[in-house]
Design a protein around this nucleic acid. Structure first.
Lengths: 139, 139
DNA sequence: CTAGTTGCAAATTGTTTGCTATGTA
DNA sequence: TACATAGCAAACAATTTGCAACTAG
């Protein structure tokens, strides 16, 4: 894919390289959807067992800087990373910790209001809504 | 106030007490608005210098369980605690890190949609919306 | 006396930094 | 050679846990 190529050249302009470790981290994030650095690390180590968690953190930072991945703070623990194109809103249940996802379209009206009234450009892809899921409310 | 009284009896039913430390933590959260456990601790220590941060953590957990305070993850660092009645939505600018606040009424429509379509009861008081503020967009 | 509570120290968890060795242009 | 990078260990920050001492009912 040309994505790979342009990524390489972007890195090259900065005197950086697309190393196997970085590629593995990116692949892991793509595959896992939402994952903590810890989870990414375990996934990567499935292929290359010597890769250190430090390297994972540094790769995630770099990939985020390049706009390829982003992180979100769902709930309490560690942040989760996902690929940039991952476009949906998270519904985080504070009771059971479960994560559901809905289309960002649900937020279109709200986004418009915020922009008009506050000049605030909502980033709907970077968003976790907290509440109680159906299961927990009924249980 | 009768709040204090009912709080005491609620605790009493569980065989617990409203200790000075817990009262100080609650007061500190009330006074500070949004504060990290660290900040709460410093505030409390202004009055009672021997209070340990462990106690602050435990008091915050308890007060949260009782529904008197709640915590929110604004941005990256430590969570911030505020009193339950603190009803507004945070607009967190990911560029400058600034926090603005808007009324939860803005989310009423969204909340209704989520409840109808997903059975998800949105907790609008526990919410940070991420995006770009007017200043940063114009600057 | 009994059970809840505190403070302290130590353990955990998540993340970052310093440094050396290595690999590549 | 020069420079980015990886790995490792140690530092760090935030939070939790184990436990002995204390205190109110």
């Amino acid at each position: 894919m040309s994505d790979q190529v342009s990524l390489r050249s972007t890195l090259h302009q900065r005197g950086m390289r697309m190393t196997p470790q970085r590629q593995l981290v990116l692949d892991a994030v793509r595959e896992l959807g939402h994952a903590t650095p810890e989870q990414v690390c375990r996934k990567v180590q499935g292929t290359a067992s010597t890769v250190n968690i430090t390297t994972v953190y540094r790769a995630l930072d770099l990939l985020e800087e390049l706009g390829l991945v982003r992180h979100t703070h769902l709930g309490h623990g560690a942040p989760t990373y996902s690929v940039e194109e991952h476009e949906h809103v998270h519904l985080a249940c504070h009771r059971c910790g479960g994560i559901d996802e809905v289309s960002t379209e649900l937020l279109d009206d709200l986004a418009r209001l915020l922009l008009e009234q506050r000049g605030f450009a909502l980033d709907a892809t970077h968003l976790a809504l907290s509440g109680t899921c159906r299961n927990c409310r009924e249980g």
